[in-house]
């Protein structure tokens, strides 16, 4: 499996994503510069976390208009799995691949800690290697992770089983304290209608090695590997 990680000025989780992909899939990982729309054929694309373009204007707004993102949109429409993590999630909403928007955290604070997520669907190229309802521990680190969308879109996401992850406590229960940013419906990750684009605020690429505190993120990359094999 060959994959690509998009690199913007200000990306800071691109190397983590590269390591995770290389470690889990064993295949080549292309680091694709944002100004270069000439991307080789790849089986999967990760839009990584960070602060692309310093979050100027709005998080992800400038990155969304970069040459490479126009290519990423094309590949996504062709069915290539695209995973947007943290700032990558913000970029994917800005380009319209995913609905909604990530607003400033409800308590206005940058949040950096481990959270628990419940796997809400295993019907996607990113989640088949999890079990339905599985509770996983993954870190978040963001200032703007407060997922907001209109009521009609929220209902659509629920009805079409497109909420991939929700914030829960360690037992898997949805409690007010478990949601780190005020996201609507405790949404931590959403899928597009074709289910080949996932955006999520937490960082699965940071938990692929026991040395770093756990391996709950590995199954996501194993899922992608299984999906494209």
């Amino acid at each position: 499996m060959k994959s690509a990680v998009i690199v913007f000025p200000g990306s800071n989780c691109d190397r983590d994503a590269q390591t995770a992909l290389r470690d889990v899939t064993g295949g080549e990982v292309v680091m694709q510069w944002h100004g270069d729309a000439d991307m080789p054929d790849v089986d999967a694309i990760v839009v990584p976390g960070g602060f692309s373009y310093g979050d100027y204007l709005r998080c992800g707004a400038i990155a969304g208009n970069s040459p490479v993102m126009r290519e990423v949109v094309k590949r996504a429409e062709m069915g290539v799995p695209v995973l947007g993590i943290c700032n990558g999630f913000q970029v994917l909403t800005e380009v319209g691949l995913l609905p909604g928007v990530l607003m400033r955290n409800a308590d206005l604070k940058f949040v950096c800690r481990d959270v628990f997520l419940r796997v809400e669907t295993t019907t996607s190229p990113f989640t088949t290697q999890y079990t339905p309802g599985q509770v996983i521990k993954v870190p978040v680190a963001h200032h703007d992770g407060n997922y907001v969308t209109d009521a009609d879109t929220l209902k659509l996401l629920q009805d079409q089983d497109r909420v991939a992850f929700r914030y829960v406590d360690a037992t898997g229960a949805r409690t007010p304290g478990a949601n780190p940013n005020g996201a609507m419906d405790d949404i931590a990750g959403v899928l597009n209608e074709k289910r080949n684009v996932l955006g999520m605020m937490p960082h699965p690429e940071r938990l692929i090695d026991q040395v770093l505190g756990g391996t709950d993120g590995r199954a996501m990359f194993e899922s992608v590997l299984a999906a494209v094999a």
Binding site: L57, R58, N65, P99, V101, V148, T149, D150
Partner: peptide, 9 residues
């Protein structure tokens, strides 16, 4: 429409 505002919000 294309950049300066996010018309979702």
């Amino acid at each position: 429409k294309k950049l300066l505002a996010n018309t979702v919000i």
